[in-house]
Structures are given as structure tokens and as C-alpha cells.
């Protein structure tokens, strides 16, 4: 029990580090030095010391929204295994996890609409457009995971998949579907450019455009935690080999090292994807997500009719 709390605390504390590493990898691949990997911590520290500036025409949503977003992100971190799972926890239902993570998206959208800035409304409408196509895919992937392991509990899924030795082809196809969904949900490159502030292309940044000071720090921290959680869920569902299932020191050290290696590999993959392809036109994003849908259906039918 106590180890679950400790691993989730480590995940929350390390989340800005992962986004710093991602930025650094992208900078190195593009051929320049880049900010130090601890830069997100400095940014959050700087923003936390500023006062909050709230527009006069905004309602209570902007006041409470960033806190709710941060608390939803932190709560979902406590519902995921990171490098240890015993398999008999009562928490960790995948549906609860997915819906808590969609609270973040919902309040982002409301904040975008709240102060009647045109960019915010545009960003919210685009975000909901993408979300509408992306949401069914994750339920198909959950159905696949249920057919594979007969469980919706992520701790149990991670344990069952960690001791599994044979890997089926449906598993790989579903992993690809989940990866596309992860990229769409976290506003990464083919769907949305996380670095831009150009009004024609931004989706996620447009919604938080008029948030400043401490609130911005909360939202930045929440989106870093969200990316780390999604990658952790991916690793724990589809690649959990080497995860610690017993509380011995050797297993825990091996699990932590393997977790870091897997995380770095996936950050590298995301960085390579981000620097090598351009952002899609908004109306071609459904094609990408439809491909993910197609992968998910293929995985389910391969699992179910075999």
C-alpha cells in the first residue's frame, strides 16, 4: 500500500523532468543546445512566485479551473502503477482513470470559453472536435484489454502482462492504436504543435492563452503530469516486462531502471515523430484517428475470433 503512494509521488515529482528531457532531445536532434532538462522546474518556480491576473469579464470557472485541473492530474497519478504492482489493489479501474483524465480536458475547454476571447473559443471548438473522434478509440482499446486479460483493473492488467512470455500480434496492433490515441490526446505533433503560438495552428495553447501567473504554473504542471501518466499507462498495459511484482530490493531496482529506459525510448520516439513530420491540417486529423480506430477493431477481432 505504502509503495503505491511512494511510486505515484515519484511519478508526480518526475513529470516535469520528462517533459524537459523531451524538449532537450528535440533540441539536440534539431542541432542546437537546448534548455537544461531541469528548465520546467525553474519555469514552474518562477510562475508560482507571480500573482494571478484574472480578466474582469471572466466568471468563477477561471478562478477554480486550474486548481481542478491540477488536482485531477494528481488524483489520476495515484490510480496508476508505475514500477510496482501487487495485482490485488481495489483502486485502478481503467474507466475511472480515463474519465478523471477527461476532466482535465473538460475544464481546459471551459476555461477557453470562459473569458470570451476569440482564440479561446476557437481552441475549445477544435479540441472538442478532435476529442469527439478520439474518445471511442480508447473504449475499443479497453475492450481489447478486457478480452486479453479479463480485467479492467490496471494493476491487475499490469501484473498479468508482466509475467506473460508469449506476445500475440493483436497485442502489437492494439499498442499502435493506443500510441496514436496518446499522441492525439496529449496534443503532440501530427495533431497539434505544442510549441507554437500562431493563431492559425494552435489548439491546446489557444485555450490557456489568457491564463497567467500561478494558474499557468498549475496548468503546465498538469499537462506534464498528464503526458507522463499516459506514457506510464501505455508502458504498463502493453510493455510491462520486468515490472516488480514482489517487494524485494533487487526486483524494485531492476523495475525502476527498466521503467526509465522504456520511458526514454518512448520520449525519443515522440521526439523523432515530432521533428520529422509536419502538423496535419485540422480536417485530416480524423483520418489519423480513423486509422487508430481501424487498428483497434482489428486487434479486437484478432483477439476474440482466434
Amino acid at each position: 500500500m505504502i509503495i503505491n503512494i511512494i511510486q505515484s509521488m515519484i511519478l508526480i515529482i518526475a513529470a516535469p523532468l520528462f517533459s524537459g528531457i523531451l524538449k532537450r532531445i528535440k533540441a539536440i536532434l534539431r542541432g542546437y543546445e537546448g534548455a537544461p532538462v531541469l528548465q520546467p522546474y525553474f519555469d514552474i518556480k518562477k510562475l508560482l512566485s507571480k500573482e494571478r491576473v484574472i480578466s474582469k469579464s471572466s466568471s468563477f470557472i477561471t478562478t477554480v479551473g486550474p486548481i481542478i485541473i491540477l488536482s485531477a492530474a494528481i488524483l489520476s497519478a495515484f490510480l496508476t502503477p508505475v514500477f510496482f504492482t501487487a495485482g490485488n489493489e481495489l483502486i485502478g479501474n481503467m474507466f475511472i482513470l480515463i474519465f478523471i483524465l477527461s476532466i482535465i480536458k473538460f475544464f481546459n475547454t471551459l476555461i477557453g470559453l470562459d473569458c470570451a476571447c476569440t482564440f479561446g473559443g476557437m481552441g475549445s471548438s477544435r479540441e472538442m472536435f478532435i476529442y469527439m473522434f478520439a474518445e471511442p478509440v480508447v473504449f475499443l482499446i479497453l475492450a481489447f484489454v478486457y478480452f486479453e486479460t479479463k480485467s479492467f483493473n490496471i494493476y491487475k492488467i499490469a501484473k498479468l502482462n508482466a509475467v506473460r512470455t508469449d506476445i500475440s500480434s493483436a497485442h502489437i496492433v492494439a499498442a499502435i492504436a493506443f500510441l496514436i490515441w496518446l499522441i492525439a490526446e496529449n496534443a503532440r505533433m501530427p495533431v497539434d504543435n505544442p510549441e507554437t503560438h500562431l493563431e492559425l495552428t494552435m489548439v491546446h495553447e489557444a485555450m490557456i492563452l489568457d491564463i497567467s501567473g500561478r494558474d499557468l504554473a498549475y496548468i503546465e504542471l498538469a499537462s506534464a503530469i498528464k503526458l507522463a501518466i499516459f506514457l506510464t499507462i501505455f508502458i504498463n498495459i502493453f510493455l510491462p516486462f520486468g515490472m516488480a511484482v514482489s517487494l524485494s530490493a533487487a526486483a524494485l531496482i531492476k523495475a525502476v531502471i527498466l521503467y526509465l529506459i522504456k520511458m526514454l525510448v518512448f520520449l525519443l520516439i515522440i521526439a523523432i515523430v515530432e521533428i520529422s513530420i509536419a502538423k496535419f491540417r485540422l480536417f485530416r486529423v480524423p483520418e489519423l484517428i480513423a486509422a487508430s480506430f481501424s487498428f483497434a477493431i482489428a486487434a479486437i477481432s484478432m483477439m476474440y475470433f482466434s
Binding site: 480506430f293 481501424s294 483497434a296 477481432s301
Partner: peptide
Amino acid sequence: SSILTALSIA
């Protein structure tokens, strides 16, 4: 085309 692909695979 992707939707059709999914249905035909199933």
C-alpha cells in the same frame, strides 16, 4: 476508407 477497412477486417 479506414472505417471500411475496420468493418471488413471484423
